[in-house]
Structure formats: structure tokens, C-alpha cells
Design a protein around this nucleic acid. Structure first.
Lengths: 193, 193
DNA sequence: TCGATTGTCTAGCGGTGCTAGGATCGAATC
DNA sequence: GATTCGATCCTAGCACCGCTAGACAATCGA
């Protein structure tokens, strides 16, 4: 039995290596540079090995996305926990979100820009994604205001953050003035009532 | 002289055909389906002809983006002109923006999602892009509120719209509840003062 | 020890964006 | 009107892509 177990462990380890390498390569040189050939070379196995772990490149992107979702949820919760009061919590959350997107552009792309074959906003949505949305909802739901559905409010606030993140990184918005943008967003959208 | 002029005309006509065909193909089957081979076949020329008009696929995407920017600016201005009062104008603008994104997903992608090799928010930004931002600024600047820079406000509001548009279309947000999202956005962000 | 199973690799398929070099055609010259 | 010559276009091919079939070796169970 222990032989099989060791093999399973090694196999799981190699799977982690694939995902970590894909992520690293994507952060270094962009997702376009993440080809199955390059990835295979970096993990020092042949190309077909990748396909014994994942159906294809899409699934590898999806795996990086799930990893990123967990980290983002943790980052957002950590930031929120250090702030006092609902508004400050939301401001901290917004900064943490944009900071995560700026620091991990490839992961952010895997999550929200690229097709990782993941289901969103459905019952079969993977747990890390649901959890990440829940992390946003926890802090944002507090400031939705009377008569406004917390889920709806979270979607709108999240969309605003997502827009700022993507437009900034794609060069569509000048990278300065991030802080005043966040302040404006929080000041207007978040209702303390 | 007239021979050369005719050739120039025909050449310009063929360039329009390339852009229109690329756009059509992208709207029908997505940008992934827009390959230089398929595009060449559709315009009934060989592949290298494309490269006598554009540096590469990127520039073709860029050309579609510029065309789309002009249309979007017109759509936004038309919607804004029919509304009474600043707030209603902004609401109409928001609906027109999201409607344009939903009706022309490939064009919207060319504009804001894909790399069309265009400069944004710089001095050498192409005129149609500046003009499209100006169209947003015209209506949104009215409701920025005291002490808030109209440009900054426009950026934030635009980012929110962009986030809603992309997240919805990518399946990250359920497609229902578009209207209440717009209402929430306008109600909170737009200041009549 | 021998067959079966598992794991991995080499080689190759059809596709991509892009380009070099030759063929062809039309305009200008003799 | 024949001939040069330049612009224009196409055939063919490069290196790369995601993905897979089939050969091969290593390991396991009998």
C-alpha cells in the first residue's frame, strides 16, 4: 500500500509544481508565454505529462485561478479585519483588492479575464470562488444601505473595483490617483446608515 | 493621375472591407475565429495582402476598436441628448453604454479587452478614443459633485460600467438585475448638487 | 519468471501569425 | 506596337501553438 501512497503523493506534488510553474511563468512573461512546451520544459517532463493532470491549458489556467481566489479572499479578509468601522473596512477592502490585482496581474487575469473553464455565480461554482465572493460580501453587505440587497450591492461595488483594476492595468487609465478613486468610490457607494 | 486615384480608392475600399469583415467574423464566432487565413479567404485575397494594409493582426483589432469607439461615442451622446436633467442623462448614458457592450461584444473586446496596440490616456491617443471619453465626460462631469474633479469622477464611473459590462458578459455576474444595478450606481454616485 | 499494467516519451497532426521570393500584370518608354 | 520596369499579388514555407497516437520501458502481481 505504501508504494501506491508514495506515488500518489509524488503525483500530487507534481501537479502542484505544474500550477506553481505556470503561475510563475505567467507573472514573469505573461500568459502568452505559458505554452505547454515551455511549461513542460520547466517542470522537466514531456508535454503529454501535463495532459495526464489536466484536460488542457484551460484547466491549468483554472487551477491558477482557484489558487488565486483563495489568496485574494484571505488578503481581503485580513485587510478588513484590521479596520475599525464599516466604512474604513470597505476602504481597506478596496485597497487590498486593487493591491492584489496589481501585484498578481497574471493570477488576476486567470481569475477574471481568461477562460479557465470555471463556472461563476452558479450552484456548481467551485468553493474558492464562492468563498472569495463571500469575503467581499461580509464587509460590503454592511454598507449596502436600507432596502438594497447586499448581494446586489456587492456585485456593483465589486464591478467598480474590477473595472478600476483592469482598466488601470491595461493602460486605459493613468496609474496615478488610485487612492482618490478609491476614496470617491467608498464615500459615495458605501452607506453607513 | 486618375488611374492612381482609382487605385488609391480601391485600396482604401479594400481596407474598409478587411476591417468590416474582421468585425463581422468576430461578432459571429468570436475573436479566436478571426485568423489571418479565414479573414483572407473571406475577402477573397491571399494572406499577405492583409499585411500590406496592417502590420499584423493587432492592428486589425485596433482598427475595429477605433471604429467601435466612434459608434459608442455617438450612441452615448444620442442617449444623453434625449434625457431631461443631469441624473436622467447619466442613467440614460449608463444604459446606452451597457447596451452597446452587450450588442457589440467583439467590438467592446477590441476596445477594452484585447491588445489593439492603441495608446490610451496619453497625448498620442487616437482621436476617436479621446472623443469617446469626452462623450462620457460631458454628461458625467455634470454630476461629479463639489470639489471632485470631473475627470476623476468620469474615470470611476466609467470603471464601474466597464466592470459591470465585462463581468456580466464573461458569466461572472448573473445577467438579470442589470437595471437595478444601474439604478444603484446612478443613485449613489451621481450628485445633483 | 513472466505477462499485464502503468507511466513516460518521441513523433506528428492540423492549426496559428507572419514573410521571403517568384510570378504576373499594367503603365510608361522607345 | 513591342519592350522594359515597377507595383502588386500569390505560393510556399518558417517557427511556433495545443493536443494526441503509439512505441517503449519500468514496475507490479501471479
Amino acid at each position: 500500500m505504501s508504494v501506491q501512497e508514495r506515488k500518489q503523493r509524488e503525483r500530487a506534488e507534481r501537479e502542484r509544481l505544474i500550477v506553481a510553474t505556470a503561475r510563475e511563468l505567467a507573472e514573469q512573461q505573461g500568459w502568452d508565454a505559458v505554452t505547454t512546451r515551455r511549461l513542460a520544459e520547466r517542470i522537466e517532463y514531456s508535454q503529454p505529462v501535463l495532459y495526464s493532470h489536466f484536460r488542457g491549458k484551460r484547466e491549468i489556467i483554472g487551477a491558477v485561478a482557484l489558487e488565486g481566489a483563495a489568496e485574494m479572499a484571505a488578503a481581503v479578509r485580513a485587510a478588513a479585519s484590521t479596520a475599525n468601522g464599516p466604512r474604513e473596512r470597505v476602504a481597506a477592502l478596496a485597497r487590498a483588492y486593487l493591491d492584489f490585482a496589481a501585484r498578481n496581474p497574471a493570477v488576476y487575469d486567470a481569475l477574471f479575464q481568461l477562460d479557465g473553464g470555471l463556472a461563476f455565480a452558479q450552484e456548481d461554482t467551485p468553493e474558492p470562488l464562492k468563498n472569495a465572493f463571500a469575503a467581499l460580501l461580509e464587509s460590503l453587505g454592511e454598507v449596502a444601505g436600507d432596502g438594497v440587497d447586499p448581494g446586489l450591492f456587492t456585485e456593483v461595488f465589486w464591478a467598480a473595483l474590477h473595472g478600476l483594476a483592469t482598466l488601470t492595468r491595461a493602460g486605459r487609465l493613468p496609474p496615478e490617483y488610485i487612492e482618490p478613486r478609491v476614496e470617491l468610490l467608498v464615500e459615495r457607494l458605501a452607506v453607513t446608515a
